[in-house]
Design a protein around this nucleic acid. Structure first.
Lengths: 345, 345
DNA sequence: CTGTTAGCGCGTTCAA
DNA sequence: TTGAACGCGCTAACAG
């Protein structure tokens, strides 16, 4: 990694280090055009590439923005990543990526690594948990973030504050109105569905999941319906799949049509995938709705009812983009929750 | 970004800078245990986080690995990104991300930015093009990469060499046997399909697309079939969608069943999506196959025949992981190319 | 407007 | 074993 240095360029151009620096980087002082030209030629000839590390060291600002996701190949996270990436591009920064599978200890490590690289800001996506087994991990993560903020770092968190993090300067949360939107979804579903409701949720203690469950129940209550039964499973496709398997018999033997709310889209997809080979058809035998409106849904059949979230905007907001509008979701009713009469296959 | 420095730690511990450095980072020289403990305590107390920029500057090795993709939210790229990320984790490095929408000039810029950050290696995913309009961009990209390699950088390219890049030291290509696999796919399809074939390809000059077209045609020829007609369109979902629209009438009015090969999965999905509302059913009215086996296919119906590519492994290989097996694809025949007799809906 | 100088935080060679 | 000094490549104060 031994590229040519600024002093080599300066020497070749016959000028001082400072002048070369002023020419090649955006300085307020503008050297004379003829000398500038000479420097540029020299730089070009030597294939000079400024050492960003050294610049960062001298300026103490790295132009880096750290992004922490559970899994970059998950459509939910990759959509957010795209937003962060765009914001970074606008800010003339680069994105540092870390995937952690959601473990708080890994996230702490990632934050430390970002801090070590002096990232200007850090974006954390992925649901927060208050479960007992995560308590210590959360505390350590919070401490690490706190230190990072105290040292002047900016943190953007998607959804919920890190558990235990003090609301320091430079720490901001991109709020997602999960509860309200879930309530809205429940209201719209209750208007056209007469049977019972069932919620397939993530583990208790996951903020995002809990919020959506709470909101959905509230929406049902407001519509004068009895609360939905809640099944707890993994907050991913596999969890949905398991729940679907467990549910198949029950749906087939019952005469009431069930309306299922899976707290996110990939879980809804998992449920549907499990039900299909069992001969349970959506929306004929049961209806189902998800949450997030990930891009994958575009070509998923039956078209899945869900709540649209502007994931890219969320990423942009978390990355500190000022002219992105605040998060607002929209209920999207599609084929998967149509009533039988309209849904001839 | 003013965290505490090594010299502060050293002062607090009452030792010299060098000693503190030796304790906190893996040096060959090991200081005495009692003094080491004192240093560690001091570091902990001050919340010391080593400045990776400064370390990189001193050691000239950044621990960074740059990744260039067209779009991080595209399942093809995000799967590769996951592989790169895993390899990086194993190597104790971090991933720097750049999305370029495929423009060679943007890619050049990204390479320069990575070089500026002294990334240890760079991974470039996304198809290469030899089209005339990309010629200059390609040349500049090749020059930039060449310079990077000469300065000791490592480059991993997925699929095809950068056009015009000299095979310098440290430059390696993860070869994907597109042609052979496409030929294999054609052979398997020809065994069960009697009607004509049609290929929906990307723009001429895109290596990946061209290879797959060539291979498919060869496979057909080997099976004694006449060459397939080739339709050129965009190398993405929208391109497939357009082609599907253009094809719908023709399929409906023809009596022969058409077997369509879209040169990648997202195009195949686009085709299918366009045909569906036109009343063209797969595989009843036509059959279709894609390429890549992206994760999205798992829940796409009708189950799409395709060629499975180990995308994560490809990412790992490009990132220089030594114990990842070489790329080998597998033809996957699924519902979308079943013959009518077996495919009662 | 240009050149000189002092750091930015750390690794590493030298003496001690 | 420990510490002092230099250099990594660059920016930003100065001085000229």
């Amino acid at each position: 990694m031994a590229a040519s240095t600024l002093s080599e360029v300066a020497r070749l151009a016959g000028v001082s280090l400072a002048t070369a620096s002023r020419v090649l980087n955006g300085s307020s002082r503008k050297p004379a055009e003829d000398i500038a030209e000479r420097v540029r030629e020299a730089a070009d000839k030597l294939g000079y590439v400024p050492n960003a590390q050294a610049q960062a060291l001298a300026k103490s600002s790295s132009g880096l923005i750290g992004l922490i996701v559970h899994d970059i190949a998950d459509p939910y996270f990759s959509a957010i990543a795209r937003g962060v990436q765009e914001a970074a591009r606008q800010q003339n920064r680069m994105v540092l990526l870390a995937s952690t599978s959601g473990a708080a200890s890994d996230e702490r490590e990632a934050v430390a690594a970002f801090a070590a690289r002096r990232a200007d800001s850090i974006v954390i996506a992925g649901s927060r948990s208050v479960r007992a087994e995560d308590q210590q991990g959360n505390a350590e993560l919070a401490a690490e973030l706190d230190r990072y903020c105290r040292n002047g770092g900016h943190v953007g968190v998607v959804g919920h504050p890190i558990v235990g993090a003090s609301a320091s300067e430079g720490y901001h949360v991109v709020k997602v109105p999960n509860e309200e939107l879930a309530a809205g979804l429940a209201a719209e579903l209750a208007a056209s569905h007469d049977g019972p409701f069932l919620i397939i949720a993530g583990p208790e203690g996951l903020y995002t999941s809990d919020d959506r469950v709470r909101g959905f129940q509230r929406g049902l209550a407001d519509a004068g319906r009895t609360p939905a039964e809640v099944i707890r499973t993994g907050f991913n496709r596999a969890g949905g799949y398991d729940a679907g398997l467990a549910l198949a018999e029950r749906i087939k033997s019952s005469e009431e049509r069930l309306c299922i709310f899976a707290v996110n889209d990939v879980m809804a997809i998992g449920v549907t995938a499990a039900l299909r080979p069992e001969g349970v058809w959506i929306p004929r035998d049961a209806t189902i709705a998800g949450f997030d409106d990930i891009e994958t849904l575009r070509d998923f059949r039956p078209a899945l009812s869900t709540v649209h979230l502007p994931l890219e905007d969320i990423g942009r907001l978390a990355a500190g983009d000022p002219d992105t509008p605040p998060v607002s979701g929209v209920v999207k009713l599609r084929r998967s929750t149509e009533t039988p009469a309209e849904s001839q296959i």
